[in-house]
Amino acid sequence: MGEITRIWPFRSHGSRPAFELTIREPPLTGDHLGLKTWGSSYVLAQLLPRFAATSFSHLFPLGRTEPSVLELGSGTGLLGMSAACAWAASVVLTDLPAIVPNLAHNADRNRDTVESLGGDVSAAPLTWGGSTEESDARFQDRHRFKLVLAADPLYDDEHPGLLAGTIHSQLALDRDGRALVMIPKRDGTTHRLMSSFREAMSSQPSPLLCVEEGVMPGRDDWGEDDDEPQSIDCWWGVFRRRQCVGFL
């Protein structure tokens, strides 16, 4: 499929108004899966207001600056930009260097919308487990983000460990830090990768445990037959440091 542009609508929640994001999706070539918007990104994006009012309420008290947010494997940037809009937060979108030009294009295209809602967004390369040359210099300053987001991030046997290690290195070490991850349960492979990811999270030097989880219905529209989107269950999990369990 060639290049397309899609508009993604988001409903109003409480005092937050409705908004739309315009996303460019270049032709899908080779292994560059991040050039397309996968269904779980939109599913998770629509849940963000709920998380702000529940699981992350300690990070969004009235009169306090919203937390710094990092999205890993941003792809086209839909999830991270929706977080900037829904949360009025500063969000850094990241992906492999080859994906970042389109990611930056989408960030620039939607900047007026994001800023009108009190948010801020930027795009930068970040390769999980890669050398410093493959990632922006800002990520050398470890443990600086209060919230880390990732949707549909696992495609290879190495990904669970690499993703868990990157979350550990970037997520704040204090008791407030949270990671929110969504993984579509497509088949036996994705179930296995999800299990490996949870094990890798708990095996980090400062272990990250899943303290809340659930499943939401979604669909993939970039399968073998684009005319027949596939319905899938999307698992989500909220993680925090083990030493923080028992605190709010």
Rank of each mutant, 00 (worst) to 15 (best):
V92R: 07
G161L: 13
L149R: 01
P26Y: 08
F60R: 00
L79S: 08
E224K: 03
A18I: 13
L96A: 14
L48H: 06
R178H: 13
C85P: 06
L162N: 06
G63V: 03
L173M: 12
R175S: 14
D187K: 01
G118N: 09
R109E: 14
L193A: 06
T166Q: 13
A137K: 09
F247M: 12
D31N: 12
G188L: 03
R240Q: 15
G39C: 02
D233S: 08
D108W: 05
L96C: 07
F51Q: 02
S40A: 15
L72D: 00
F239M: 01
L149H: 05
G237W: 01
E20G: 09
R50V: 15
H32S: 12
S231C: 00
A88I: 04
A84S: 04
V181W: 02
V148Q: 07
F145M: 00
E213S: 12
G14F: 08
R11G: 08
E25Y: 11
P160F: 11
P61K: 13
L70R: 11
F60E: 03
R219G: 09
P160Q: 10
L48C: 02
S41E: 12
I23W: 11
L171G: 01
V100I: 13
V114R: 02
L47F: 11
P207K: 06
A53V: 00
R241W: 03
D108F: 07
S169C: 09
L47C: 13
R175M: 04
A84Q: 10
R138L: 12
V100N: 06
L163R: 05
H143I: 14
M194Y: 03
G75W: 11
F145D: 08
A164F: 10
E20V: 12
S122W: 06
H191A: 15
V43T: 15
R186K: 09
V245D: 07
M182W: 01
G246P: 09
G188F: 09
R24G: 09
L103H: 04
R142S: 14
L21H: 11
E158R: 14
E133T: 14
R50Y: 11
V211I: 11
R186A: 00
V43S: 11
E66R: 15
T37H: 06
M216C: 07
W235F: 13
R111K: 15
L117V: 07
P61R: 12
L79C: 07
A107R: 10
I4Y: 08
I183S: 05
F56S: 08
R186M: 01
A124Q: 15
A172N: 10
V92P: 07
S15H: 11
N106I: 14
E134C: 08
M216A: 15
T127Y: 04
R186T: 06
T29A: 14
G161W: 02
T65F: 00
G130M: 10
A123F: 05
W128A: 09
F56N: 05
T132N: 07
R240S: 10
W236Q: 01
I99W: 01
V181C: 02
L35K: 04
T113M: 10
S203G: 09
A98G: 06
A84Y: 10
A89G: 07
R50K: 02
E25I: 11
P229Y: 05
